[in-house]
Design a protein around this nucleic acid. Structure first.
Lengths: 190, 190
DNA sequence: AATTGTGAATTGATTCACAGCT
DNA sequence: AGCTGTGAATCAATTCACAATT
């Protein structure tokens, strides 16, 4: 989040920012921001603030965002197609290098290649891909996950609405749109 | 999350579940689950567990998920189109009743009507819509938000990668796909 | 004068440990 | 015997308050 805000500042030719201003932009409190940063070192100048350029570089290094990470996507339905077409990732250092689906033929005419599921493990191994996005139906998500893990994937962004069982060295982030809506719905009932 | 797991159990004709089993399915610890539930009352039977049917009903009531909530969507790009076509919401009690875009004409041939932005506020007011999904570019997201809030929206699911400024009675949930990927990427660098 | 960096204090969430039901 | 419900203990995150620095 901080990185995103810093990039916005940079594109507005702002050189220096106080914890107060950056925190406001990121939607957190100034002390929170300062505490967060000190876990990784001291980057500010007292009385002045943080150098936008320098702080940007340090967070990028930390996140390992400086090199382009290849990512694959499994399940080219509505959501999968949208993510394939979405350009927003590349700016942040990720590239969806290929997609996989049971029916790759029907999913042609896209910028990205869509392969059949048989090619999945071979592709992961040959290209050394470490991250995958799962946009398959819940019923097959665990089976797909098993294949991914077996082939060496260590990070999964899961859009299927269930909890995936994985070995502990594999990291899963879940995005569940229905839960987000329910959450909103709960908090606005007043 | 619990609700989702309970529904799965129900469809497998399972009548009763222990905190241990349900917690496992939801990816949390048993004590966590029990503590969570007791914030709202006592629903289990000692020595036996929870009645799937009863617990389902109580969580549904709590979430207000029993009545169908109308939701609108603003910004019919790649992601917006995918969400419009996504059926997963309806099962959870939400219906995207309309979408809005600067160029509604180009976005026809869908199950849902796509209106021009001029119709936005009128629609919200007439239909009493309380929730909106924002899938517009970051550059116009704040402006769209202002319009939504002015028309009476009180819950926003925001996919634009920036922090929206809203009055405190309005709830915003952010979904930022690039941040999810970055997060994964950070935790798998070993 | 402004603003960071950070121990200490506070607040909040999770887990333990076990009493209490069925 | 099995399993929930929960006060107490622990662990983690946030915020305060202010010394240190430019």
């Amino acid at each position: 989040m901080y990185l995103r805000c810093l990039q916005r500042l940079k594109s507005n030719a702002i050189r220096t920012v106080s914890s107060e201003a950056l925190a406001k932009a990121a939607g957190v409190k100034p002390t929170q921001l300062r505490k967060d940063l000190t876990y990784f070192g001291q980057f500010g100048t007292r009385g002045l603030g943080y150098d936008v350029e320098e702080l940007t570089r340090m967070i990028s290094d930390l996140l390992g965002t400086n090199s382009l990470q290849p990512v694959i996507l499994v399940g080219v339905g509505n959501l999968g197609s949208a993510l394939l077409a979405y350009r927003g990732f590349e700016k942040e250092g990720f590239e969806i290098v290929a997609a996989f689906d049971l029916l790759p033929g029907a999913k042609r005419n896209r910028a990205k290649p869509v392969f059949s599921m048989e090619k999945l493990q071979e592709f992961i191994r040959e290209r050394g891909v470490r991250m995958a996005i799962i946009t398959v139906p819940a019923t097959v998500a665990q089976e797909v996950t098993n294949q991914l893990v077996e082939a060496g994937i260590s990070g999964i962004l899961n859009f299927a609405p269930l909890v995936l069982q994985v070995p502990e060295e594999v990291v899963v982030n879940n995005v569940n749109l229905a839960i987000e809506l329910e959450n909103l719905s709960y908090f606005i009932q007043s």
